[in-house]
Design a protein around this nucleic acid. Structure first.
Lengths: 211, 211
DNA sequence: ACCTGAACACCGTTCAAGT
DNA sequence: ACCTGAACACCGTTCAAGT
């Protein structure tokens, strides 16, 4: 298990079967309460009740409420990162147009797959501990993106281009989630995002010659 | 004064001189505490102390902590909206390339002008009441943007294009703020944003013929 | 090794008393 | 009309006692 920043590190690693179940129940309850009550009204007691454990159990695995929320966010975002990384591997060596469309489709569908949770966790992502999680995972998916982008085109600064692509994708999708957009609106936005990123990648770098 | 949603509406409108000063002091203190302590550790007592008033005074003008935070956010974002609207008026009728560069420059400099506050208020924008403020002001600047975009080009759905432009701008700038980027990084990102939006606008709509 | 829940400190909000 | 601050309810966190 990779080491986490101090405040995110669980106090105890579950070693017995029941504790693993407890932690899973806590994560699940945390998302449920977040969806039902929202960030402001989330209470450690509500989470514990919903998980079927006592408050004390939460503090056996998380040093405080913030770290519980950050860990719940991380769990959720790891799925999105995995989808992005997979899209990058899949379009590696293809043309930038295909990279753009593959990336947009993977990201949008991963986010919308669990839209309620994505939306409810938005406030967590903005808070200090959550922001660190976001920064770390964003960097991770940008790394994957850089590699794939560089496989087709030559950019002055690939890291910069990956950061722009990433941000330009996150912004519109975030506003989609906040307004719980309808299916047709989602696909219209998706089309425009693909168009935008394709146009950008063509403008920002030149195609590499092939052997 | 335009009417605000219930939860944001101040309980009392300042009518005497001292109360106007009090409200201004509370807003100012709220931002200071947010910058110093962050969203999680902000306390109504801290804000009151910093403003030089008692807690009770805060509740004379705001029904609760959330509405105070939302109102503080609104006050801040109104400056950004004003900058965007001004840029739109200024580039009205010009070519989409100029609209894109004018918009990016206005938005980035407005956000970075008070970077500490922008960054500290990020968590407020993600919370329920704050999100409503953001939604309302975003819509307002998108309206201005639609008009300006339509003055040069014909789009299938101008509202959609404005939403994409807006989101694609907010995303990368938000990540700039979160990592408190250096001056050169900021201008590199600004250049890429201009490039991206110019390429997108050219790809998304056709130039109108001129009389 | 893990769980419980009463107990404590602290924070949001109110309201009677003041100017 | 506005301000004060003690008082109350509630929430985050702990820890002694349990299995």
């Amino acid at each position: 298990m990779k080491s986490l920043p101090p405040s995110l590190k669980p106090r105890k690693t579950p070693v017995q079967a029941r504790s693993t179940i407890t932690v899973a129940a806590i994560f699940d309850a945390c998302i449920q309460v977040l969806i039902q009550s929202g960030y402001e009204k989330l209470t450690t007691t509500k989470v514990a009740d919903r998980a079927g454990v006592s408050v004390g159990s939460i503090y056996q695995y998380f040093p405080n409420k913030q770290s519980l929320l950050a860990a719940t966010l991380e769990q959720h975002l790891l799925k999105v990162v995995a989808a992005v990384e997979q899209a990058c591997v899949h379009t590696q060596g293809k043309r930038s147009d295909e990279i753009a469309s593959g990336l947009v489709e993977a990201f949008v569908s991963a986010k919308l797959d669990d839209a309620a949770a994505s939306s409810a966790l938005y406030a967590v992502a903005a808070e200090a501990d959550g922001a660190k999680v976001v920064a770390r995972l964003t960097q991770r998916s940008q790394k994957a993106l850089m590699e794939t982008l560089a496989s087709d085109r030559e950019f002055g600064d690939t890291r910069l281009v990956a950061a722009i692509v990433s941000g330009a994708l996150i912004g519109p999708v975030q506003s989609l989630l906040m307004q719980s957009a309808s299916k047709p609106v989602v696909s219209a936005i998706q089309t425009q995002l693909i168009l935008m990123l394709q146009a950008y990648l063509r403008a920002a770098g030149q195609r590499k010659r092939r052997a």
